[in-house]
Design a protein around this nucleic acid. Sequence first.
DNA 1: TGGTAAACTGGAACCAGTTCCAGTATGCAG
DNA 2: CTGCATACTGGAACTGGTTCCAGTTTACCA
Lengths: 337, 337
Amino acid sequence: MGATIRDVARKAGVGLGTVSRVLNNSPLVSPSTRQRVLEAIAELRYSPSQIARSFALGRTNTIATIAPFFTRPSVVERLRGIEAALAGSTYNLVVFNVETVARRDHCFNDVPRRDRCDGLVVISLAPRAAEVEFLLQADVPVVLVDTFATGLPSVLIDDIAGGRLATQCLLELGHRQIGFVGDSLAELAAFNFTSSRDRFIGYQRALSEAGFMPRPEYERHGIHGRYEARMLARELLQLPEPPTAIFAASDTQAMGVLEAARDLGLAVPAQLSVIGFDDIDVAEYLGLSTIHQPLFESGTRGLELVLSQLGGPSPATGIEILPIELKLRGTTAPPMA
Amino acid sequence: MGATIRDVARKAGVGLGTVSRVLNNSPLVSPSTRQRVLEAIAELRYSPSQIARSFALGRTNTIATIAPFFTRPSVVERLRGIEAALAGSTYNLVVFNVETVARRDHCFNDVPRRDRCDGLVVISLAPRAAEVEFLLQADVPVVLVDTFATGLPSVLIDDIAGGRLATQCLLELGHRQIGFVGDSLAELAAFNFTSSRDRFIGYQRALSEAGFMPRPEYERHGIHGRYEARMLARELLQLPEPPTAIFAASDTQAMGVLEAARDLGLAVPAQLSVIGFDDIDVAEYLGLSTIHQPLFESGTRGLELVLSQLGGPSPATGIEILPIELKLRGTTAPPMA
DNA sequence: TGGTAAACTGGAACCAGTTCCAGTATGCAG
DNA sequence: CTGCATACTGGAACTGGTTCCAGTTTACCA
């Protein structure tokens, strides 16, 4: 337990530096000396202190990730990508889960610091101007995933195009009354989520491009979750003139919409078309039509960008746009005649 | 960036100890001195180094968790429980994801050390005798969740009883040919998972207690996953005398069984009853009959036990058994006459 | 007004590594 | 046999906090 490098040095009859060199595989140690040191290490069951090492080196050997609601399926999938890219390296992964705005702000202030982590991946939460400033001056490489901010490298999809794609698909099927179920705008603003907001913008654009007037009664926003989406969809479906199709800003919310249809005895897709977003694991199982995005890859790619900056501050300030794909499955069809 | 406590002391015209006392809210500082120090801190934009602090205190301010396949829904839910219990404390959460046996062994050797974490929650992976020894002598509080080992505190359910409960339920419905789909026994042994193994034991016991001979052709084991379970279930359902009911060792695998039934055009529950285990989030959505266990609570409780040991080494070596509950939903029914 | 306890303050020592400079041994050429 | 480059080695200094002891000031009482 308590053996230190000095104990090893004494036991092996060598100097401190020599033990350190052995530990770090420096070639500047003769084989016989190395052997002696290794024996002493084994005898004392010595293992170097990570903390002391971090302290001396000024590195933490840690990659941090700030993730909102890290149990949402899409976030989990991104985390898995990060983790996969990390395996093999010697870095540990520290997860900062953000479920409140206070925690969000706290994380942005506290995490991006040399004495906390060597690199940082921020998922979904867009930093505000002052926070970008802070992130840039902290000499910790930061990469944003699923969001963006000028001056910081990021990996994301074109959510506006995604929202438009989903909506256009419904339009092409012949739908004219298309509802939307998405996140609470106040919540989006408080956390500064951009992706869900952009999907909504894409929905609106697609409709106006197709020459339709906005119908605010078809646009419902609520706290993220299956249950909430179910309630919102029920409201939509009980309107005097209910929509014949609903675009949900995430697959989780699309599941809530499907539940609402079930509640009201509406057949999907015969009486109601539903399309989601993300293509999470269960979407395929459920036969849910959706917009596929490379969740796992966004994590690996984000982490790769962080790692690439660890050596030297390379100018990796670009924005990488990953491809999206419309997945038509069993929840979309033309409206009833 | 680089201001140290000494810079602050110099700037404020006080001693090192005084600055440290201010930082740690010691009452032994006069208001005027404290004021002066706080001003110096603000002017220098000083913020104490976490690493140096950890080093001096011998604490890492970190709780580690070793989790196998941390993206499986049940594991995610437990992690969420851990995270929830951690919020509010100043500890950070480091996640060690285990997807290979090598990584498993490495984690058991490397993580439980004072210089790595202050406490450890191990999910699902049972330590072997030598590892238990190591965990006990490392002076880091360890709690096992979803598994157990003599000498270590743990939070888990009675998986044998759970397996028995699921099987008995099918027996009581009148089923006589009951299949099982579960994890690869080799994989279970390699990682030393206990819960899935015990569910299988419960299945076998229920059958033998009811006077049935074991039918090995009804027992299928494979790598964990929906797709693999689907293949195994297809094999079962294509037997000359196929089972009329299948118990799957997890909800994920139960979903695979449902897919297999769909593949073969079997109506559930009319032609095939299916029961799962865990009651993960989508189980309710799917109307899947299952054995509910408090996943979230297992995480919070596990973490609470770790935290309670952080003060002093209290003798929290007990095993806490959480309750399970049979959830009969829409995938179970009596067999066809 | 002197004495003493209580309140406050300063700074050396410590935590366990790494780094780097100076020093010693070795080998080889002149 | 000497000189010098090369290979190896030892240990002081350093990283930035905390802790604790000793010293100084202050407050209050007799």
